[in-house]
Every structure is written in C-alpha cells, then in structure tokens.
C-alpha cells in the first residue's frame, strides 16, 4: 500500500500536489466503478421499485401523470382471474420446457461426442452449431415463418416427400393424413413451431457450455475406466454425467431465466398477435401488449412482477434440488 505520513502536522505542510496525488489515489477506484452504480440506480433499481409502485395503480400514460389512481392489489386480483394471463403463463412454461429440455438432452451427448470422438473438426462443428445463437432472433424467426408455411413451406414439403417416398414411407407414412400442417395458423401447432425455432437457436449455446465443462474433466479418469474395462457408455454415465453436474446446473439456470422471458421469436412468428386463440402468446408478449398496445401500465407492471415471481420461484426450486449438490462436486 502507500506510505503513511508521519504526523498530522506533517500532512498539513505537504505541498498541494502531494495531497492531490494522495486524494486521487484513494478516490480512484470509487470513481472508476461509479458509472455502473449511477446508471444502475437510474435505469435498473429505480425502474424495479417504480414498477412495484405502478403495479398498485391504474394509469393510462396518455392522460398524464395526474390521472394515476391508487387501487391497491386490484391489478393482481384482476390478473389472477384473467384467462389471458393464465394462458400466457402456461404457454410460456409449455414452450420453455418443450424447447429447453431437448436442448440439454441433445447438447450433453453431442458435446461428449465432440470432445471424445472428434479431433480436428471439433472447433468448426461447434462454431456451426453456435451460429444461430448470435444471429438476430427477428431475422431467423422471419426465415422460419417461410419454412413453416402451410402450402409452400419447405418443412411441410419435406414431410410430404418423406411420407410418400418408397424408402421412408414405413417411418413417416403416418404423417400423410395430417399434412399439410398449418404450423402458424392452427392453435395446436403454434407452440411446437415456436419451440422448434427456439431449440434450433439455442442448442448450440449449450453445446459450447458443455464442451467447456467437459474440458475440465481430466482425461486420465477415462483412461483408468478404460483399463478397468468400462465401455464408452459406462464412462459417459459414471464419469461424465456426475462431473458435469455443476455445468448442467448453470446451463439449466440460463435456460430457465431466458426461456421464461421469451419474446422476439413468438412475437415474430405470430405476427405480434399471439396467434390463433392466443396459443403462441408468452407472458412477455402479454406484458408488452398490455402496456404498449392497451396502455394499461399498472396492469403491465403487475404482470412483470408476477412473471418475476415465477422466474424466481422456479430458479429457487432449481437451486434447492440441484444447486447444492452441483456446487459440492465443484469444490
């Protein structure tokens, strides 16, 4: 650290430049980190507190601040009785599971195969899987809305081909009756369509996380297992999976928090409406429409708090069941 001055008397007699120098040295770290805290106070903390306050009001912003009226928990009571709110919540959780679970079920073995079985092509393959993650969700959702087209969408055309071609009909023939599927028009297919897009866009991110996790497992463990006569599958179940648990825990946490806030993909695929019978409307979309289309700012703020509550609860449950044991193996 710095040299201490001898006595207080000395300090007073020091030249001004020395005192300035000492001051700038002491203040420097606080000055350096202060921009974050100032900006967070204005654009992070204040909005959270204000949205809690707002959720207890009825307010249409067009009519000015003066028309804000305190209504207590009325917004929450309304929402808990609102079928659209429940539908958007269950849609969100449906899509979160249907797109999230397969991501991990595919990404873990895939990362294992990449690390164990592939040498030179490991990096280019990983980069390809990862590419959708860095592209604009709006752009890829638009591309997917042409892929999902009923009459001319390439997905339906490929499925129609598979259903009638001689080599694949035994497996896909059963599809013939349901084709062509109206992916984005029929209520039953909108959530699967959104989930397919979300899976496609994010599974590569998890592959990358898991390859990074696998790289921390010493190869000698596998060699010892091999000497003892263990098969690759046994190595996977008894070495890889247990040691990968901390990474699985982190990756699933990302998926929970991210998927429950899903907005861009369902918004574009359903043209901003939520689709037939709101079957593609996520909670984030409902929040957006309530606030910015119907201008019910108080209700929208209440939705954001209820959504936060759901995210928080699920994250805590996840921590409780998997977090501690996951973190212990990491020590």
């Amino acid at each position: 650290m710095q040299q201490r001055p001898g006595t207080p008397n000395d300090r007073a007699h020091q030249p001004l430049s020395t005192r300035i120098d000492r001051w700038q040295r002491r203040a420097a770290p606080y000055l350096f980190i202060s921009p974050f805290f100032i900006l967070f106070a204005i654009f992070g903390l204040f909005p959270i507190l204000f949205s809690a306050y707002l959720s207890l009001q009825v307010w249409n912003p067009v009519q000015g601040l003066g028309t804000m009226r305190f209504v207590g928990l009325e917004n929450y009571v309304f929402l808990l009785d609102d079928p659209w709110f429940w539908r958007s919540m269950s849609n969100t959780i449906w899509i979160a599971i249907a797109s999230g679970l397969p991501q991990h079920l595919v990404a873990i073995p895939l990362a294992f195969a990449l690390v164990m079985g592939v040498r030179s092509l490991r990096h280019p393959l990983t980069a390809i899987y990862f590419m959708p993650y860095i592209t604009s969700a709006v752009a890829v959702a638009l591309v997917f809305s042409t892929i999902f087209g009923t009459q001319f969408g390439v997905l339906n055309q490929v499925m129609a081909y598979l259903a009638q071609a001689s080599w694949s009909a035994w497996l896909f023939g059963g599809l013939a009756d349901t084709l062509p599927i109206n992916w984005l028009g029929r209520a039953a297919y909108i959530k699967p369509a959104i989930s397919i897009l979300v899976f496609w866009q994010f599974f590569g991110f998890n592959v990358v996380l898991y390859t990074a996790g696998l790289a921390t497992i010493p190869r000698t463990y596998y060699e010892a297992a091999q000497i003892d006569g263990a098969s690759t599958r046994q190595s996977f179940w008894h070495i890889t999976l247990p040691l990968l648990r901390p990474m699985i825990f982190f990756a699933v946490t990302f998926t929970i928090i991210g998927n429950l806030q899903l907005f861009d993909q369902p918004f574009i695929l359903t043209g901003g409406t939520g689709g037939t019978a709101q079957s593609g409307m996520t909670a984030a979309m409902y929040l957006y429409r309530t606030g910015f289309e119907w201008l019910e700012m108080g209700t929208a703020a209440a939705i954001s708090w209820l959504l936060f509550l759901v995210i928080g609860t699920l994250t805590v449950i996840h921590f409780y069941f998997f977090g501690r044991s996951g973190l212990e193996t990491r020590e």
Partner: peptide, 12 residues
C-alpha cells in the same frame, strides 16, 4: 430479469 423494469424504462 430485464423485463421487470421495462415499463418504467419507457417512462424514464
């Protein structure tokens, strides 16, 4: 979650 402050963000 960034969504939590989205309404006040607009107001600010």
């Amino acid at each position: 979650p960034p969504l939590l402050g989205i309404i006040p963000y607009y107001l600010i």
